[in-house]
């Protein structure tokens, strides 16, 4: 009598594959967030032993005050007037740095709108502002202290 070999059928059960996939999709959909990953960049100066001294008359002073008012070199200006004024100064000296000072009581948005405007200089006036300095309150106070102003 011949013994018949019993065939063992091999197969991978894929019935639950769709369920697992749906669970994964739900997980990714719930945890993924469309986040903002772009912004305005600025580089801080490298730390050197000798601090380059910038005299006030050598720079353009942009002062953002509470309420969003702006003074450039002490003169009140609107947003549209800033870049033409800076362009006239840069024509005399293209390396002129711009100092962006902001009052502590002004909002962050007031400051960033002016900073954004300064960064648009190559497109709007065809000239690049090579140095935009954003001094902090402590640095400003240190400078005033050097001049003996409390």
């Amino acid at each position: 009598m011949k013994l018949e070999k019993r065939k063992i059928e091999s197969e991978i059960f894929t019935g639950s594959m769709a369920d697992i996939s749906f669970l994964l999709i739900i997980y990714f959909m719930v945890t993924s967030v469309f986040s903002a990953t772009r912004g305005l960049d600025f580089a801080l100066p490298k730390q050197t032993n000798t601090t380059p001294e910038i005299k006030q008359e050598d720079s353009i002073d942009v002062h953002v005050m509470q309420g969003g008012q702006i003074k450039v070199d002490g003169k009140p200006m609107t947003m549209d007037q800033i870049l033409p004024y800076i362009a006239s100064k840069l024509k005399q000296n293209p390396d002129k740095p711009v100092i962006l000072r902001t009052d502590p009581d002004a909002t962050y948005n007031d400051m960033i709108q002016v900073f954004d405007l300064l960064r648009q200089a190559p497109d709007k006036i065809g000239m690049e502002i090579k140095t935009i300095s954003i001094p902090t309150q402590r640095e400003i106070q240190n400078v005033w202290a050097l001049f003996g102003v409390q």
Binding site: F42, L44, Q47, P104, D105, Y108, T136, Q137
Partner: peptide, 29 residues
């Protein structure tokens, strides 16, 4: 930073980063 936050909060953070000798800063927008 929130656009409506007072600049003094951002100023303190910038000052801290300058003290820590950070080199590149991005203001997210």
């Amino acid at each position: 930073a929130d656009k409506d936050t007072k600049y003094e909060h951002v100023d303190k953070v910038l000052d801290a980063l300058k003290q820590a000798k950070a080199r590149v800063i991005y203001l997210l927008s």
